[in-house]
Structure formats: C-alpha cells, structure tokens
Design a protein around this nucleic acid. Sequence first.
DNA 1: GCCAACGTTGGC
DNA 2: GCCAACGTTGGC
Length: 150
Amino acid sequence: MAFWLMKTEPSYFSIDDLKRQKISMWDGVRNYQARNFMRAMKKGDTVLVYHSNKAPVGIAGIAEIVRVAYPDPTQFDVANEHHDKKATLETPRWDAVNIRFVKKFKQVLTLHELKNDPHFETMPVTQKGSRLSVQPVSEHHFKRVYKLGT
DNA sequence: GCCAACGTTGGC
DNA sequence: GCCAACGTTGGC
C-alpha cells in the first residue's frame, strides 16, 4: 500500500468534480518521471489530490487507485489539448489511471501550512521549484496530512 | 552528447 | 501577469 500526491488545476479538474463523478480517469500527464510513478501505482493505493495554481493552493482531499496504468486515450485524440503526435496505438507514450473519490477535506490543507510544519520539511511538494505533478508520499507524511486535513 | 532555445509549470 | 525553475527539442 503506497501513497501518492497528484496535482491538478481545479479549474480543469477539482476534488468536487471527482466527488460528483465518483470514479475519474486521471489523464493528461505529459512528464516521464510523473508517468513512471503512475506506472508504479497499484490498486488500492492512496492519492492526495492537490489543487495547484488557484488559491487556496494545497491538498484538497483523498482518492484511491481503482485501475492501474493504461494508455492515456487523450494522446491519440487530435482534437484533445493533450494530443501527442508522436504517440501511436502501437507505441503509446503516456498513461492514465482511474481513481475513486474517498474524501474531501473540510478545508484545503494549504501549501503555506505544509511549509510551516516541520513534519513536511522533506516532502517534495514543499520544496522550491517542485513541478513534478505526480509524487510519492511517505506514510509518515500521509498520516500527518490525514490528521491535519480531516 | 552538448547545450541554446524554447515551452511549461505553478507559486505569488 | 510575472518569472524562476525546470523539462524537452533539435542542430551540431
């Protein structure tokens, strides 16, 4: 059982969208390191859903992996903003996973709060210039987030 | 393989 | 909207 953090711009896809849809495809990841982390995800793993770019920036809730990595269909779709002309059905480049809504935090656990809590000093998301959209989370960090968020 | 140019992310 | 910190591309 592993823990992950995945970033989304809430104007594009938010924890409320996930709550409404119950199960959602997490697509559009176009970074190899992030993709490789997605490939390491197992059914039942826990995901911290992180809202980027729009205040309040931070962890908005929790989801669970219900389908492991499979070729992201948006890479083949010329009309999609995430279309990749170098990807083919035979040699796909990018993967998606499916997640299930678990919990929305009463309020977003903000990046500011994470940065001000010494427990999170080594958490990747609190590091300056951390752009990786899919990150592993330690159990220690997850437990602390859970405690503060719920 | 180097690295400049370019594109993107994401906090602020 | 700004811009630092990246990641990617492509000429050489």
